[in-house]
Design a protein around this nucleic acid. Sequence first.
DNA 1: AATGAATGAGGCTTCATTCAT
DNA 2: TATGAATGAAGCCTCATTCAT
Lengths: 206, 206, 206, 206
Amino acid sequence: MTTAPAPRADAARNRELLLAAAEAEFAERGDEASAASIARRAGVAKGTVFRHFATMDELIAAIVAKRLAHLTALAREQLDSDDPAAGLYRFLIVAADQRTQLDLRFLMSVSNDCTAACVRDELHGEVVRLVDRAQASGALRADITGTDVFLLMCSPLHAVENLPGPPRPNLWRRYLDLIFDGLRPQGAHPLSEPAPDWGTDRTPGS
Amino acid sequence: MTTAPAPRADAARNRELLLAAAEAEFAERGDEASAASIARRAGVAKGTVFRHFATMDELIAAIVAKRLAHLTALAREQLDSDDPAAGLYRFLIVAADQRTQLDLRFLMSVSNDCTAACVRDELHGEVVRLVDRAQASGALRADITGTDVFLLMCSPLHAVENLPGPPRPNLWRRYLDLIFDGLRPQGAHPLSEPAPDWGTDRTPGS
Amino acid sequence: MTTAPAPRADAARNRELLLAAAEAEFAERGDEASAASIARRAGVAKGTVFRHFATMDELIAAIVAKRLAHLTALAREQLDSDDPAAGLYRFLIVAADQRTQLDLRFLMSVSNDCTAACVRDELHGEVVRLVDRAQASGALRADITGTDVFLLMCSPLHAVENLPGPPRPNLWRRYLDLIFDGLRPQGAHPLSEPAPDWGTDRTPGS
Amino acid sequence: MTTAPAPRADAARNRELLLAAAEAEFAERGDEASAASIARRAGVAKGTVFRHFATMDELIAAIVAKRLAHLTALAREQLDSDDPAAGLYRFLIVAADQRTQLDLRFLMSVSNDCTAACVRDELHGEVVRLVDRAQASGALRADITGTDVFLLMCSPLHAVENLPGPPRPNLWRRYLDLIFDGLRPQGAHPLSEPAPDWGTDRTPGS
DNA sequence: AATGAATGAGGCTTCATTCAT
DNA sequence: TATGAATGAAGCCTCATTCAT
């Protein structure tokens, strides 16, 4: 069961250091982040980055996986709330609030990474469950799916990014509210396109 | 009297070729687009890119300006429609439908370009007008602003980008419908954050 | 005899404009001077530069030739002065004073240009003549040659260039005086190297 | 105790290789020298140039600093010679002889580099000391300064550069002798310009 | 396992020169 | 002849990745 020897303690710590540094760099500097700046921030040598993550894409995949796993956990926390709709709403709040939503652009450039794809599927599953519960309780319109909510999850944060001038840290809540109102049964109009398939059976990629 | 722009015919054509090639490259390859790939696609030498656009940023600014100007025109077309809400909805449709919405992230990396900023402000103004009319007609909830709609404009396209698997070209309509339902008066819940200022009086930046 | 038709008037004027602009640009901006900046300064299109001078090197050669020819004229003016040594001194003064001495670096990168080489040889000849007269008058030490003086001609200007801080426009005179004192018979010490040959019979080069 | 600089051995060697290659390239090809040609000559990859010198200017500054530091050392060696004038003369000889005098034009394009400026000031100081001693001994005319000699230091090499035809490796000695004769008290004529200030208190520049 | 030097492909930009108008 | 657009070879520099220590 113990496949890894002891001295890994240091290595594991470095891995965490690097992940944290990378998240921070990508968050602060976006595309400007580089292996060098991440290593510097983590306090390790550049070579160490590549000992832990063979490729920059792998690093990104690891971040994404971590973030998505965290989101999955948050979703599960809300699965047994008394008010299903409130639970879903709270999930969407905490998910964004903890800036846990890394720009999902990354997911696409990495979607052929198996790990990230799997963990994303898992999160998707939880969101589906949350949505199903809320629909069963009648608080959500019947013509939407968990996949819809999954896809819309980042919209509040995206919307806010296009506002010029100084950032308004909580403004995204406004757009979450607005979008959430669109998910309710009241005043729902028919949708012009059918719901998308999540497509669980993906081919592994290249 | 028009003796001057004689050899400009070719040049103007090249400029359009370049803009088109650049749009296509950025659309297809995003950050990977380069002056070289754009030139290749346009069928001109690399140096020609820089005759027309002194800087890569200038090229991007030109694309953004062109796209936003187009959107502005589309918005104006809907300003005198009989049904204001339908007009706004149609604007949002055609805007997205013509994939006219270049990823607005670019605007941020270029926001210090005066032209792009100005033309963006102009588009914002038209959207505000459209929204005001729709509100006056009672078809839109009263607690939202044109700025809100402006910020949400790209959300349908963004949402769709996160769907794994083969693309569904019109799926974005589904999310436009959903979001639009959230803008209606029926079933509106109070919003947790006040509307943002557009901040017309921006400082030019260094 | 009239090999050139009338419309050359314009062309000739442009040629002078270009030469003047090029001199000014090289003087002000040194290596930073470019075909574009020269054309701009001359008020013509870039293509026109190359109609008059097939190559940048040719332009430089033309400038050098013009400058050297001017120097030659100045030298001749002093050939019949009463006091030969004073004549030589005055020549050295006016040569430098009129900033007629373009950085001779150029000469080297162009020395295979026949025109420039010829006109330089001519100037050399005049300097030799001035020096010979001065030596005959006993005002110059006997162990130096006109070639020596020719080579030292630019030294005062070169020396001054290495002074940091704000330029002292006439400081070069100090070094001309100093060097000139070294050319006098008084206190002359034997020289460790024989005088160089000018080498009149140069091969034209590629 | 000296565990740190272990892998530096190779790096240091490369740095020297690069400096040497750069000196050679600049000497042979002047402005034509490029990062690529330097790297090729040093037998390293182009990127390695920039690991050692962040900028081309930095490389040049390093060369200049190295050369000037060497000159400074040579000057100090002569400070305690018995015959002050001979010491100064020997300094000027060895300085030029070891082709240690890189074209000082470079200094100007780099004068905002603090290191180079400082080391140049240092060399200037030593020359001043050598000249002061020689003046005190009566072997040098009284109306010149160390700054004068500093400025004239490169003149013999410059003079030689203007001789067409095959190079005469030691010809510069002839002009050093000539110039040195001008520095002696015998036959000195009054100088038309006062001595320049070195201007020790330069502002650092932006 | 960690380090940091080395690599080399690739990006942006400049500029002398050519060429169609 | 003049124009100015087009060309393409370099130039400088960055950065992910590899490798010797």
